[in-house]
């Protein structure tokens, strides 16, 4: 055995966790080569030194300290899929049992009282918009009245929306806009009182008590 083979063989034995002294070829070569004998001895001392090294013990409350750090941020598992499915099912059932037809207009118009249009242009435009829509066979007059109310409100707030030609768009806009129409008008009025425009406006600063009072006033487009 040559010295370079000695090193390779030594590493192989250590890789398989076998004692180098147990290999007769290594022993024979180490007996003849002082350098490799020194290497074999150093390897044995190294392995012995690793075994002799003491490991200090951890405190008994180590785990408790770890958990104390983690526990405030420990969160339960997210809702499982079955819970999401149950929620969706419940929402579907709720939608199915909700009153429909003639009750719907009253439920929606409850958000804000209907204000008559200030000019006949908007109403006539809406009539032209909804003329082609199929009438409701159950309650045609209520259906007509409801669409008139919604459309009038939209046209008062946003006259440019008179270009709408689809009933679905009118419905979506009405549902989204009517609940916020009154506070929106009040906010716009407050802003107009704060920011000077062309028209003279009172210069008093806006206050919280002003908003409810303005909300009761008729809306101004």
């Amino acid at each position: 055995m040559r010295c370079e083979h000695f090193d390779v063989r030594l590493q192989q034995l250590l890789d398989h966790r076998r004692a180098p002294e147990g290999d007769p070829r290594l022993r024979r070569h180490a007996a003849l080569c002082p350098r490799c004998h020194n290497q074999l001895t150093a390897t044995r001392r190294l392995l012995r030194g690793i075994q002799l090294r003491e490991l200090p013990t951890l405190d008994d409350d180590f785990a408790a300290r770890v958990v104390q750090r983690v526990a405030p941020t420990a969160r339960p598992q997210p809702r499982s899929a079955w819970l999401l499915v149950a929620t969706a099912l419940a929402a579907t059932l709720l939608a199915a049992v909700m009153p429909q037809g003639p009750h719907a207009p009253h439920a929606i118009t409850r958000f804000a009282p209907h204000t008559p249009p200030r000019s006949g242009n908007s109403a006539s435009e809406l009539a032209a918009t909804t003329a082609h829509l199929p009438p409701n066979t159950n309650q045609p007059h209520l259906e007509q009245s409801w669409w008139t109310v919604c459309g009038t409100s939209i046209l008062e707030l946003y006259p440019e929306q008179a270009r709408l030609r689809h009933r679905q768009q009118v419905s979506q806009l009405a549902e989204e806009l009517r609940p916020i129409a009154t506070p929106f008008n009040a906010t716009v009025t407050v802003l107009r009182r704060t920011i000077p425009f062309g028209r003279p406006e009172p210069k008093s600063p806006p206050s919280a008590s002003l908003v409810p009072r303005l909300a009761q006033q008729p809306s101004h487009a």
């Binding site: 785990a63 408790a64 770890v66 958990v67 983690v70 526990a71 420990a74 969160r75 339960p76 598992q77």
Partner: peptide, 8 residues
């Protein structure tokens, strides 16, 4: 699931 005994 947040079981502190399991963490310990």
């Amino acid at each position: 699931a947040g079981d502190q005994r399991a963490m310990l």
